[in-house]
Amino acid sequence: MLTSTQPPSNILGVSPRLSLTAISSPRIDQRLSHTPAGSTLPLKYRLPSQSWDSHMHVVEPQQFPVSKAAVYQPSVHTLADALAFESTLGLENLVFVQPSIYGTDNSCLLAALAQLGPSRGRGVVVVDPASIQPDTLEEWHELGVRGLRVNLQSVGKVMGESELEETLLRHAEIARPRNWIIEIYLPLKMMPMLESIAPRLGVTLCIDHFGSPDFSSLSKNQEGISFDPYTLPGFQSLISLLRTGNSYIKISAPYRLTNDRTQAQLKAMAREFLSVAPNRVIYATDWPHTRFTNIDITPFTEWCLDLCADEPGLAEKLFRRNTERMLDVNSTSS
């Protein structure tokens, strides 16, 4: 079994459960160059060609056992399953993000990334900065790894500013010389801390899942369509991070953040992100929607596409170009 410190040595045979035929599916043809408002064509014909799902997971607990500290027990979700799902939306390229259940053992992610290949895949791993070896990081880079994840939200970790700064600086020392990103999942209310720390890191940041806002304290009046996202604690700091030009935001996993009454709030946030920093917003499905069941991501993808309808080229940025820039897709190793 692959370990977190040893990359796969046989790229075409790292995991017998991952189907080779699954990665040879043809590119989606007959895309529209511009999506008319109200189009009823399937999404796979409306999303830009070579679009990316910038945040998804492959989970195989039988082949790659989860951490003893995992806060939930996952179902099996293979690379073949992922590709079947992505094809329904017309997403051709994948960013594998290390889920909390695997801790610092990136074996499952590396196996999937090795099989898909760096021309269609990127990876964001979780490491212990004190023990990870430089040779291992270089081998992972060749596979397509381009980021380190710091995940506080999934495990309920609370940090003060000094601890957060120390953690991010240690990761930045690894990421900076490789031009990797640090992907961070933390509550929106912690954004002022991150805004203060970010200039000392010298790396690109990617903030997961809308910045993880908490809508639970909203009044009925605030749930309306005229909602001002700047009333959310931390939102101004998040916008300031995006304005600096060295941070990205993922609009993803809406079901983790909202319900039918507060969907307008996420749309208001997304509109502001796209208005302020159209080159720094990226789309993702968060497949396989761990800890949730019966999720249909199609309506969310539809409204993401609708947000781009009035500005030519914006959908191309949201679904493709911004991810490619952030994760160095056009580098020589890809």
Rank of each mutant, 00 (worst) to 15 (best):
L83S: 06
P61S: 09
E60P: 03
N246T: 15
P199G: 01
S4Y: 07
T290C: 13
L83R: 12
P61A: 09
D214W: 05
R120M: 03
P48I: 00
R325C: 11
P233D: 04
S19D: 13
A111W: 05
N93D: 06
S49G: 12
L257C: 01
V276G: 00
R122G: 03
L18P: 10
K267Q: 14
N322A: 04
R46S: 11
P74F: 07
P187F: 05
T285G: 02
S154F: 04
L305D: 07
S87Q: 08
H34V: 13
P129L: 01
V127T: 08
T104F: 11
P192H: 03
Q133M: 08
T244E: 14
L12T: 12
S333C: 12
A37S: 13
T78E: 10
M269C: 09
L169F: 10
G234C: 03
Q30E: 13
R256S: 08
E183N: 10
L41P: 04
L32F: 13
G224D: 03
E302R: 10
A37Y: 11
D296H: 05
S19P: 06
L168V: 08
H34M: 11
P65T: 00
N294K: 14
E166K: 14
D306Q: 15
C206G: 09
T293G: 10
T298P: 07
I295V: 11
L169I: 14
P199T: 00
F210C: 02
L43A: 04
G121W: 01
T285Q: 00
M56Y: 06
E195H: 13
P26V: 13
P99C: 07
A84Q: 13
Q263N: 13
L110Y: 01
S87I: 07
S252M: 09
Y283P: 00
R120W: 08
S162C: 12
G245C: 07
S107L: 06
Y230F: 15
S87M: 04
K157H: 07
L238F: 00
